[in-house]
């Protein structure tokens, strides 16, 4: 007996496949068109392009403006990611191990920046940055990005800690490890998949962040801001090339995340 028969006749099953294919196509079509357009050899965007080449990639990777903005975005994301992981993990531990009465309230506060309209958050951070005279600098970008990346770490690590068997830490402590080393040698390696997920989320969100950063910059431009301001006065295929590059980075990291998920969920070692 085949699995299809199990769910009923073949016709609805085929229909389901068709619907799913259509949905996927509509979701991904804009991206596919963008990627194809980025390989145009012409000086304008068109679909399908009359001829193909890597002309616009060359242009992007030799343009000082693009390289500066890519470098700024990567630098911010590279600083934000470890900070976000450390602070988010510490917060997740505090929520998991701290007084139960405070847990719900504190967790809501921690996660609020994730659901707040970013434009409101951006406005607030903008006023603050002006007051402290740190706008248009790392001192403003990094805390601003952290407010929206930390919740992702708190959620992924927090969920992992909920299923973590605390007697493992107690076993380590009875064997001579203090609280810190028990967490370091036992807890952290076991919740590693959650740490990796939180780290990748932090990186992607920071790298991709536009609205809040837009409030905080004056002369400096992160990659999303550079893309936006380029689009303001011209639509050149270089935008498609940059978008494809960004897409590639994000897709690579997401793929890593998904692959890790598969590896760990199939791993009998991790409970």
């Amino acid at each position: 007996m085949s699995s299809q028969e199990h769910y009923g006749s073949r016709l609805p099953y085929k229909f389901l496949i068709g619907v799913v294919t259509l949905v996927i196509f509509f979701l991904e079509a804009p991206l596919i068109i963008l990627v194809i357009q980025s390989f145009t050899a012409e000086s304008y965007l068109s679909f399908p392009p009359p001829s193909y080449g890597i002309r616009w990639y060359k242009e992007v990777l030799t343009s000082e403006d693009w390289l500066n903005s890519i470098s700024l975005s990567l630098t911010i994301a590279a600083i934000v990611t470890p900070l976000s992981l450390v602070l988010g993990t510490m917060a997740a531990f505090a929520l998991d191990r701290g007084p139960k009465k405070l847990k719900n309230g504190l967790q809501t506060i921690m996660i609020a920046p994730m659901v707040l309209p970013h434009i409101v958050l951006g406005l607030g951070l903008f006023k603050m940055a002006l007051q402290l005279d740190i706008d248009d600098s790392m001192l403003a970008y990094i805390p601003a990005h952290l407010t929206i990346t930390i919740p992702f770490v708190v959620i992924s690590v927090g969920a992992s800690l909920q299923t973590f068997e605390q007697s493992l830490e107690e076993a380590a402590r009875s064997l001579g490890a203090n609280r810190f080393w028990a967490v370091w040698y036992i807890t952290l390696p076991i919740i590693r998949p959650a740490l990796i997920a939180g780290g990748i989320f932090s990186f992607i969100i920071s790298f991709d962040e536009f609205i809040i950063t837009f409030f905080l910059t004056t002369f400096q431009r992160t990659l999303p801001i550079e893309m936006f301001s380029t689009l303001m006065y011209q639509v050149k295929p270089s935008i498609a090339a940059v978008s494809t590059l960004t897409l590639a980075v994000t897709a690579f990291l997401t793929a890593m995340l998904i692959l890790r998920g598969q590896v760990t969920s199939g791993d009998k070692v991790i409970k």
Binding site: E165, S167, L168, E170, A171, A172, R173, S174, L175, G176, A177, N178, A182, I186, I190, V269, I270, K271
Partner: peptide, 16 residues
């Protein structure tokens, strides 16, 4: 961690 006691748990608590 400053006591030398050997502890065996009901669920063994082996480091997975």
């Amino acid at each position: 961690h400053q006591r030398t006691v050997g502890l065996v748990f009901q669920n063994y608590a082996l480091f997975p």
